[in-house]
């Protein structure tokens, strides 16, 4: 089952990468604000049901993919939500 995990810096957490990207975009003439840089992980999960896949993905996020002290995560399953 194809899945995508989005990891974002939580609101209020300093994101120097986002700030640098925003500055650079402004230098290019774009009127932008509030740029934040996160991470995207595409993966294939072996699970019999979408619910089980989602449970596994939650565990992956909690244990490794995100540090929940500073990051939030969002899971997208290609086969639709259970």
């Amino acid at each position: 089952m194809r899945a995508t995990v989005l990891v974002r810096p939580k609101g209020g957490i300093l994101d120097p990468q986002g700030e640098a990207v925003e500055r650079s975009l402004r230098q290019l003439g774009f009127a932008v604000d509030g740029a934040r840089v996160g991470r995207l992980i595409d993966l294939e999960v072996a699970a019999p049901t979408p619910a089980e896949a989602r449970a596994q993905l939650e565990s992956m996020c909690e244990r490794l993919l995100a540090n929940t002290l500073i990051e939030s995560y969002e899971i997208e399953l290609e086969s639709g939500d259970p």
Binding site: I13, P16, A20, L69
Partner: peptide, 16 residues
Amino acid sequence: CEAGLLPGVLRPNASL
């Protein structure tokens, strides 16, 4: 920190 043996986490330097 990542192992949870110490509190907190280290992030990219503010200056980048």
